[in-house]
Design a protein around this nucleic acid. Sequence first.
RNA 1: CGGGGCGUAGCGCAGUUUGGUUAGCGCGUCGGCUUUGGGAGCCGAAGGUCCCCGGUUCAAAUCCGGGCGCCCCGACCA
Length: 587
Amino acid sequence: MRLSQLLFVSLREVPAEAELVSHQLLLRASFIRKLSAGIYTYLPLGWRSLLKIIAIVREEMNKAGAQELLMPFAHPAELWQETGRWDEYGDLLMKLCDRQGRWFCLGPTHEEVITDLARQMVHSYRQLPLNLYQIGTKFRDELRPRGGLIRAREFLMKDAYSFDRDEAGLDKSFEAMRKAYIRIFTRCGLPFIIVEAEAGAIGGTENLEFMVIADSGEDRLLQCSQCGYAANRERAERRPPEGLERFVAKGQGEGTAPLQKVATPNRRTVEEVAEFLRVRPDQLVKTLLYVADDGRIVAAMVRGDHELNEAKLARLVGTKVRMADAPTVERLTEAPVGFAGPIGLKEKGVLMLADYDIAFLSDFVIGANEADAHFINANWGRDFAIDRFADLRFADSGDGCPRCDGILQMHNAIEVGHIFKLGTRYSEPMRATFVDEDGKEKPFVMGCYGIGISRILATIAEIHHDDDGLIFPITIAPFEAWVLPIESEGDLREVAERVYADLQRAGVEVVLDDRDERAGVKFKDMDLVGVPIQIVVGRSVRERGEAEIRLRRNRDDRRYLPVHAVTETVLTLRRQLYAELTPNEEA
RNA sequence: CGGGGCGUAGCGCAGUUUGGUUAGCGCGUCGGCUUUGGGAGCCGAAGGUCCCCGGUUCAAAUCCGGGCGCCCCGACCA
């Protein structure tokens, strides 16, 4: 490709709209252009990189036995109403209406469509297992698009769906995808961590996220310093703190000060109460009331400076839970919302759960179940009963690993892939069934597997760059090599043309900067785009007949080679660079 | 949706507080000359519904009202 012919308009200055490095660099290097919030055109350079990501994904998916197809972008509302997600997904769905007044949505994911397809076409266990995937545009009307391609409203995604006879089959399909994903992200040059996660709106049971640690990431994960344990913060468990059993065995807190009611006029939140009583937030205990699906009322107590993890509470209770509404709270505590406390609740049949950390507290502050009042010097066991101490809050850096005696460390991360075991969450409501060997009709046992294609590009930019621009892994770079003649005319230009032609003949994807620009401009642009192999045709050619070859990631290590040996060297370097990103075979 | 910021030439911005000539600056673009190893110099030129609508005023980029768009911070996701 001759750079003069490419739609390439590099920006010297950082566009005001971009905050994240990946967003800035992809804009500056002419990879993307914004059309609207979270909606981007992929320019020729960006699209070349995306096509490479797509090719890798496609290759590995095919190798794993999946079949590619392409499903519609417009989904009829009735399909989504079958699973209840037309309402459940809510405003995330971009809804539209045709001339007949029929409603559609732009597909944010394709469980409904694929399940509908399966129930039409798959009727026998003989057709299973089946894994179908597509690579295409998804639309999610996100609450807030962010960071360019990191979270767009319209984005490229690979989504795959597996169909099996039973759980054992699903386990195999899931494992095949896990391995394929490892190969995919390795080949993309992304250092990833596999973490346990919550299922979210997709539903289902077990699921794993593929995360890339990056400061700009919107996800938090916790990783053990010693063993391999890693989990999304939504999911991360923590080891019971040192000495928990000893404290619990005592049956009550250690405080001896008498329980005392104090007036806290109109102070409801932890901050307000703590400030008013001049204590630290960690000397308060929040009592949060929840209603379980089976009607039980649960009190969840966490320290004032901690945050309750509802998913953990739900898992402990064994059903979904939702925060009790104001009337329920008021009926139970006989006080307005904001003053709930644990005393007297157990007597009313409330299940009393407390986070581990509460066991260590003594003489703390709790709500008094009375307007404008709190108790100070409260002690559990003495002043109120606790049914169970458990892990109820979000984990943090410094908490103990649940699997070993290591310590957890929290990191920001970007989610690039997510694999789910869905079970029969979609096949059952949609009556997608097959007839098994025993002649019985059974719902498909499904899995689904996503990869954010366009997000991979942004993540690579986020991880691989320096002050001057992008530094692409060769597998994803829009081109493999870049030839820069420091003069745009004359002998050096001629040599550059020859080198360029040679490389093309040898099958190298190469750019020739044939623009009539000053050398400095060309160097800046070459570094900005970040193609891995750089070839400079400069003075050394004129002086000694040697061209300069170097890698973008290590620009200062320059090698000088006779012009006729350039192609051979580039081929060698190329082979090495690809080899670095080749997954080892057992993966 | 809540909170904050922004909208002036392709890009980055000044001008708006305190209304007043022909709306500026840098970069980029086009033409010319000189340059050529890390975003060159000089000369010349083009390029604007000052986000939109309405109001106030002799006069609005500037003041007022309404709307739209974009970015950032919080609850969702690949």
